[in-house]
Design a protein around this nucleic acid. Structure first.
Lengths: 340, 340
DNA sequence: CTGTTAGCGCTTTCAA
DNA sequence: TTGAAAGCGCTAACAG
């Protein structure tokens, strides 16, 4: 833990002015090759590294991007963070990470901090949306990009496509010969997305596929579930206990699908022989479990990467498109097969 | 994106000097209640938030702590990040997150950046340990704390306890009546931990329990595996294909255990009726799968929390103990039962 | 109790 | 091509 080396130190060592050191290091300015070499040598010899605070104060930038996420234990969010993290590093900035623990109040606090000069910009994943949040964001001193936020026109958003993915999954099931296809829905509404367009869109894709195939939509096959394994398990049991049970189940997300698979096993059903199961999201685990899960791939990593890129462009005044929708695609693995 | 409000603005608005504003806001100094109230009112009216860069420059601190982790997709690391993140927030600092993607060269680069003034201190989780890393860290301008790093005397470390946990797990299996207990080992050596003391310690705990129970150690029950599901599955198949197969398997970690369970299922064995399986780590998923996994709980969250606290204490010159070992404990769930 | 002065380390004028 | 001066916003030290 030594004392820091400053430009002045380097200047002294190289026998030039502080200014010249700055110019040599930052390149942009006219400077003789010989002087530059001398400065660079002195700098590396002394182990000089620019002081970030001073540079920020001067330049008005921190070279830090804030990312606010609900919960890191969830692979869904972790993947998004990974994508954003990479994009940010690619452009030479760093990532300040905040977690809201799914608490709206905490969410608001963190947004206040992050938009106060700690970071040059802010990405929020799946904002919970406490009442004042939107307004708070619109008045933010730094640009904001939202991931997985719906019905927000004023702020840039990056969202995954849901309808076509759900439709493709249902079509896959129909093509295999399934006619009774259960659908487990996700979590309830949130203030920022009163209609949970992602859930609505998935359901719509499911219905579209059914209609196109001439299969009647049966509301008894629609079951409220949730985004976690235990909730999926419950829903699975309920659906499979139906008098005329489904031969395939389309779950709200992968974790929910894992729960459905467990429910099936507990009832002595084999997947995919006796029951086909499709998930949504394609978290890393989906490809590792047995049977590997057929699922709709949501570009989680790309969502993060794209949001970061968008934010960076906004900062550079590139004025890019403000609403990005990333396509999903069906990944057929081993949890689906023709009905028995 | 408005212009920032400065102390001077607040001072003007409240009819006092900039100094008084600073004092009023930071509390420490003697100031009349009336003036303080006036300043606070002016500040909140103007929406003043202190500029982090200026404060850093002045105080020599950034109030940022760096955390370098290999991979966020892995719940093991994600939990550690979560713990550290909480401890850091509790003390009013923020977290700068870096990922090394398991690449030693990248690891070194990030360490260079982080120890150069971006952050006030640095936590590295499971350092891969490229040749120069240790030296680089010792010369770091900021204090460093290592998580899951072994054989490092010069730097503070926070490590999980392995031997007793493994012993408790094996004793549990023995108490259930198992005599042939398979053991799947983890990953190979790494430069920074030539003997992988965690793996060695787990094996030692396993042997100790065996010896104490008067059960002979059978090397054929020892199988090299790995820390991921597919590797565990392979190892599981190999062990179960033995002429005299184990009735219980102790896996290198939870993901490995999930693989073993899959292997058992593929061979028509029920868990825990036909085969007991114990994991290591207790990642969040362990309690959610079916059957819920009996496993040795590694205090992942605490590891992160404790490392951050240690670092914060180091920064405050509290001179705390430099090597912390956190106890593990056995969590008995549903994947273990008496042998058939 | 309040205000003045100065300077943290850097870089953008502007002048030499 | 190089250097001198000034100031980003904040607060420690010292006067008043």
């Amino acid at each position: 833990m030594r004392k820091a080396v400053t430009v002045t130190d380097v200047a002294r060592h190289a026998g030039v002015s502080a200014m010249t050191v700055s110019k040599a290091l930052n390149g942009r300015d006219r400077i003789s090759e010989e002087t530059r070499a001398r400065v660079l040598a002195a700098a590396s010899e002394l182990g000089y590294v620019a002081n970030a605070a001073a540079r920020s104060l001067r330049g008005g930038r921190t070279d830090l991007l804030g990312l606010l996420v609900q919960d890191l234990s969830n692979q869904y969010f972790a993947e998004i963070v990974r994508g954003a993290s990479e994009a940010i590093r690619e452009r030479g900035l760093d990532l300040v990470l905040y977690t809201s623990s799914n608490d709206p109040e905490r969410e608001r606090q963190r947004v206040a901090t992050l938009s106060s000069g700690v970071s040059d910009g802010l990405i929020i994943v799946a904002p919970h949306g406490s009442p004042g949040l939107l307004e708070q964001l619109q008045h933010s001193r730094v640009p904001v990009v939202l991931i997985n936020a719906w019905n927000v026109d004023d702020l840039p958003t990056v969202n995954p496509e849901n309808r076509l993915g759900a439709r493709a999954a249902t079509e896959h099931l129909l093509a295999l010969g399934h006619r009774r296809i259960g659908f487990v829905t996700g979590r309830p509404d949130s203030p920022l997305s009163p209609e949970r367009p992602d859930g609505v869109m998935r359901l719509q894709g499911y219905r579209e596929a059914l209609v196109a195939a001439g299969v009647a939509f049966d509301p008894t096959l629609l079951h409220p579930g949730g985004l976690h394994l235990p909730l999926g398990r419950e829903a699975g049991h309920d659906l499979l206990a139906l008098p005329d049970p489904p031969t395939a189940i389309f779950a709200a997300n992968d974790f929910c699908a894992f729960g459905v698979i467990e429910a099936a096993r507990e009832r002595g059903l084999r997947v995919p022989e006796d029951l086909s199961v499709v998930g949504f999201d394609d978290v890393p685990m989906a490809g590792q479990v047995q049977p590997a899960l057929t699922t709709v791939h949501h570009p989680l990593h790309d969502l993060g990467h794209r949001a970061a890129t968008l934010l960076l462009d906004l900062l550079a005044d590139h004025a890019p498109e403000r609403h990005v929708e990333l396509p999903s695609r069906l990944i057929v693995r081993d949890s689906t097969a023709p009905p028995a």
